[in-house]
């Protein structure tokens, strides 16, 4: 495991922001750390970077305890926390050069990074005049500068347009596939993560509600039979009386957990027998977004 925490708990005053968190981030994964705003994502990330002191529990990164191996571990992590930290009075390139000076990295690498995030043309422009998306890209370049083994990115696509989001996604996938990096990326949007993440952790109110591979998450996602009839309420009641589990009723549709094609046919026959007109009946895959909402709301 690249990141391994056990029983990680953090309080701000008497408010518990992170509750007994046990993260398992395997090497070579893109770990999507998901949760609504205020769920404790940024606090967790700050704990992982030793910016906040661990109050309870333990953090191991690259198999080593964080606090006693702080510098060694930090030298292999690139991070972007909340808004990118950029000196606005310096140009984009100067921002990178300053970091390169601190980390003793060549200027060539700085130019490569500018090129990678498409900021070569704006390299000599003051970072204060950058658009939000450009700042975000510069922040990613800063995180990548030292060629770290682990990238910790807090909402890196904030403020990016769809093209920018796709670019970042492809870049991260490439880094993991071709350069064996591990990426820990937080987001409040599942849709943004699900296309690249190999693993997912879902957090709300400081508690980890789900953790596993994206396949495990998908397997939790059971398909439904969506039925549209002329009299929704009566039809739903009728199905219930006939031992058909109705999971949800909306104004237009009745939803029943899908088991087989056979079952769909039987439901159709059942309703027809009682004279309900079935306008449509079909199998529906619930989108992950709904699942995400379901997971975070039931807690």
């Amino acid at each position: 495991m690249v990141i391994d925490t056990a029983g990680l708990t953090f309080n701000f005053g008497n408010q518990t922001v992170v509750k007994s968190l046990s993260l398992q981030v395997p090497e070579g994964s893109i770990y999507g750390f998901l949760g609504p705003n205020g769920a404790g994502k940024t606090t967790t990330i700050k704990l992982l970077l030793n910016l906040l002191q661990v109050q309870q529990g333990s953090i191991n990164i690259f198999g080593k305890e964080l606090k006693s191996n702080r510098l060694e571990i930090l030298s292999q992590i690139g991070s972007l926390i909340e808004q990118p930290a950029i000196y606005l009075h310096l140009t984009g390139k100067e921002n990178l050069l300053n970091r390169a000076l601190l980390l003793q990295i060549s200027e060539k690498r700085v130019d490569d990074m500018l090129n990678l995030v498409h900021l070569t043309d704006a390299a000599h422009k003051k970072a204060g005049q950058y658009s939000l998306g450009m700042k975000q890209r510069l922040g990613i370049a800063l995180a990548l500068l030292s060629d770290p083994k682990l990238l910790i990115l807090d909402e890196p696509t904030n403020g990016l347009d769809p093209n920018g989001i796709i670019e970042i996604r492809e870049l991260l996938i490439k880094l993991v596939k071709e350069h064996q990096k591990t990426v820990f990326i937080s987001s409040h949007l599942l849709a943004e993560i699900e296309r690249m993440a190999t693993h997912v952790g879902i957090i709300n109110h400081g508690e980890l509600l789900f953790q596993g591979s994206i396949k495990e998450l998908e397997s939790m996602n059971k398909p439904l039979v969506q039925i549209e009839t002329d009299n929704i309420a009566d039809a739903a009641n009728y199905l219930s009386r006939n031992n058909v589990t109705v999971s949800d009723v909306t104004e237009q549709h009745i939803y029943v957990p899908y088991t087989s094609k056979q079952q769909m046919g039987e439901i159709n026959a059942l309703l027809n027998q009682m004279g309900y007109v079935v306008y449509s009946i079909n199998k529906q895959q619930q989108d992950l977004e709904k699942l995400f909402l379901a997971i975070t709301q039931t807690a």
């Binding site: 910016l51 510098l71 930090l74 992590i77 601190l102 980390l103």
Partner: peptide, 11 residues
Amino acid sequence: ADTWKTLFSLP
């Protein structure tokens, strides 16, 4: 620049 966090997460 909100850079304390970066300064203190450097090696």
